[in-house]
């Protein structure tokens, strides 16, 4: 029995919207009548345990899986039938779980792959400058093979690679996964900075504490259903969240 959503669950002018999305893998009902609404300029976080439908959500946004029923709207246009490449071209860009850099390509080549759907030109150079400014370390190591970097450095390149696509919406899948606490802090600072520069962020994250510290709003998924949504503030105060995701025992 899903709990009633709290207030502020809808963005007034959404950039990305799920309307009644149902996704099946064979017989498995992975997303059950899911509605999300991500407003322009927001950081929205998606919380939930294992196998709750977070990855399916990401795959549905990127077009790796197609919803069985329901609509995915981006910037007012239904996109659920578009191929992945067209979604990237329109500005929906992923930062993949576990980074997934191309290990035997240089860092520069990885950044180039991020800009795969774009033409070379001054805009490419501007974005490259922006990435190098955000991550001086990435610039230093640009001719090194990506597979030789530490996890934290790889995450910097993965975020840089997403920025090279000139994204309007970045979908981050577990950006803190496998990183040392120091890097987690840094990565979340960077995410906030990118958001301040105008990019909308939708973020799947296990680390609810960190996620709610930078997100404006969040959704909670359980076995494929949205059971709770609200502002980060509201969710931090919610007893169920405190117990299940913030590691606090209810007394």
């Amino acid at each position: 029995m899903p709990l009633e959503g709290l207030g502020a669950g809808l963005a007034a002018d959404p950039l990305l919207e799920f309307r009644g999305v149902n996704t099946y893998y064979g017989d498995m009902h992975a997303l059950k009548d899911v509605n999300y609404s991500i407003g322009r300029g927001e950081i929205v976080s998606l919380l939930g345990g294992n196998a709750c439908g977070k990855s399916t959500t990401m795959k549905t946004i990127m077009g790796v899986v197609r919803p069985t029923t329901g609509t995915v709207m981006f910037d007012g246009v239904a996109i659920e039938k578009l191929p992945t490449s067209e979604r990237v071209r329109r500005g929906i860009v992923p930062v993949l779980e576990a980074r997934r850099l191309f290990p035997r390509m240089t860092i520069y080549e990885n950044l180039e792959m991020g800009a795969y759907t774009r033409k070379r030109g001054p805009e490419f150079d501007d974005d490259l400058d922006r990435v190098y400014t955000l991550f001086p370390r990435v610039k230093e190591r640009r001719s090194q093979l990506a597979g030789t970097l530490s996890g934290g450095e790889q995450q910097m390149v993965a975020i840089g690679r997403a920025l090279m696509a000139h994204p309007r919406l970045i979908c981050m899948d577990e950006p803190s996964m496998g990183l040392s606490p120091l890097y987690v802090e840094q990565v979340f600072d960077i995410i906030q900075e990118i958001n301040r520069q105008g990019t909308t962020i939708f973020m799947v994250e296990q680390n609810a504490n960190m996620a709610l510290s930078i997100a404006h709003r969040a959704y909670v998924l359980q076995t494929g259903q949205v059971v709770l949504s609200g502002t980060a503030e509201e969710l931090r105060e919610n007893p169920m969240i405190r117990e299940a995701y913030l590691g606090e025992m209810q007394v």
């Binding site: 992945t84 490449s85 993949l96 997934r100 850099l101 035997r104 390509m105 792959m113 795969y116 759907t117």
Partner: peptide
């Protein structure tokens, strides 16, 4: 090196 990641770059 990683077909799925390449697809996600728009390849």
């Amino acid at each position: 090196q990683d077909a799925e990641a390449a697809r996600m770059m728009g390849v």
